[in-house]
Design a protein around this nucleic acid. Structure first.
Lengths: 108, 108
DNA sequence: AAGGATACCTAAGATACTTAGGTATTCTTT
DNA sequence: AAAGAATACCTAAGTATCTTAGGTATCCTT
């Protein structure tokens, strides 16, 4: 029950983690993740934008448009309290999941 | 590209790992995993049986019915060469995936 | 004898991700 | 100055995996 949520929501979990310390916009998230994983995570725009919209609808993040003129038009997101709570829960679940995965799939 | 396969196929990956060293039947797999993860992985029969059928169709495992009479009617599965190859690839991908996940979601 | 555990199976629905398409602005190159 | 690449946003339709829900049959325990 728990871990399936994590699995399916790995994008969500990573987004929550990145937003913990700073505001980020969708396109920036994609670039940050693809760069930090050296292209191993091939995040698609469609997946990230729809996930952000869903997360905002669920009250996990809040987005606001940066005033145009200053720079390119961007929608910056930040965490809500609910988002921080889910992040904490996800961290615990991820630890358990990865521990068990390592145990179950160990090369003997 | 890679890691999504791992995520969605975590059941598949675990099954390949368990079958590496011994023949196991579907119901036994479910019990082993649920016991070893203390119920954290709540594998459903429907997911496991359909995954096994799909894996057999894909040539990753081979199942054979144990002669009835000896014990309860069971279908035991073992790995094929193709299954062993996928298992090796999955192990590599899982290492990369979990490494990056830890990096991206670290509590700073 | 009844109920629970074992052991197999399939169909229909929910959901996340991919594929595929779109618009508009800014920067770089020729 | 025009063209193309990169940035930055968005949505719709298809695919695949898992859940929910249902089924059958055998064996063991009380």
């Amino acid at each position: 029950m728990f871990y399936q949520q994590i699995i399916k929501g790995s994008i969500k979990f990573v987004i929550l983690s990145i937003l913990e310390n700073r505001e980020v916009y969708g396109y920036g998230l994609i670039q940050a993740v693809n760069r930090q994983t050296k292209g191993f995570f091939e995040w698609r725009q469609s997946a990230v934008y729809t996930t952000l919209h869903k997360m905002e609808k669920a009250g996990l993040v809040k987005g606001k448009w940066r005033p145009a003129g200053i720079a390119r038009k961007r929608k910056y997101y930040h965490l809500t309290d609910k988002g921080r709570q889910l992040l904490a829960a996800n961290r615990t679940e991820w630890l358990a999941f990865s521990k068990y995965m390592n145990k179950l799939t160990a090369n003997t």
